[in-house]
Nucleic acid binder design. Structure first.
Lengths: 143, 143
DNA sequence: TGATTAGTGGGTGTATGTGGGGGATAGTGG
DNA sequence: CCACTATCCCCCACATACACCCACTAATCA
């Protein structure tokens, strides 16, 4: 299970080292794609297959469904860790998330999220301030 | 499974190199045709057969069905990769999609979409801006 | 304190995308 | 039936990007 928050940086060659605690489950292959709230989602191959199947099954004839597939599937890229445990994010994904140099990697159980440092700071601030409110809102969906 | 976004260009001779990650499944033959949203769809032979069957089964008596068959079936052309992994798009398809020089190839699980760079940029911008909306809308169909 | 590990940085070789020359093939016109 | 042209596909050449190797530093652990 992926948990925790890590601050790493992307080097001149575009390489981002994955936290050691995440690596074991990614060596056999992983997929990164556009996530919601303009962060990136990184999945294990196995998890990705489940997601992709669901998305691919959406009806071709619905506009929103096509858009969502394009976001998720066309956004996806399968990556491999180099010998030092690093990955190379494609430019179009860095652009989507607004990633420059400093990124935050967060473990989210079945996926890893990748954020530009600035966005994460802001997002986190807001979440932490409103945590009680947010929790109340969840009452309805049965947590 | 086809995934990802690639930016390639068409050379003077009209050749378009297919991303390496897509080639293995296309060497045995592929079919390109008109797609929705004015992009082109590229299928493996196998996938194409499924699509063609479905489209051919549409009722002759419905105007929309006839039009759609003409879009898809009459639009189709089977291509082969040259030794360098390149294809040659027929002119009527390039015209349909408005393809000039720079194109974007996107992996969409069972098909590849081919877009003129400009159109893709605009389309993507719009999708990315609305991604949360689109996702919420899909709640209903169970993702 | 010494050894190991993790994150980072850089040099180098290979593979991929791209471009062009030349020969074979198919369509067109006389 | 032949000649001409345009198109396609082979081969080769080149540049860039990527993944390997190696090295360094800082943090962790015994």
């Amino acid at each position: 299970m992926f948990i925790g928050e890590y601050s790493h940086s992307i080097d001149e060659k575009g390489r981002l080292s994955v936290p050691v605690k995440f690596r074991a489950r990614l060596v056999s292959g992983c997929v990164v794609t556009r996530g919601l709230d303009h962060c990136l989602w990184l999945f294990t191959d196995e998890e990705w297959r489940k997601i992709a199947e669901k998305v691919a099954a959406l009806p071709l004839t619905q506009r929103d469904a096509r858009s969502f597939s394009r976001l998720v599937l066309a956004g996806a890229m399968d990556l491999t860790l180099d010998k030092a445990g690093r990955i190379n994010l494609p430019n179009y994904l860095k652009d989507y998330a607004g990633i420059k140099n400093k990124v935050i990697l967060t473990g989210m159980y079945s996926r890893i999220e990748i954020w530009p440092e600035e966005n994460w700071k802001n997002f986190k601030q807001e979440m932490e301030d409103k945590s009680e409110e947010i929790a109340e809102g969840l009452n309805e969906i049965g947590i």
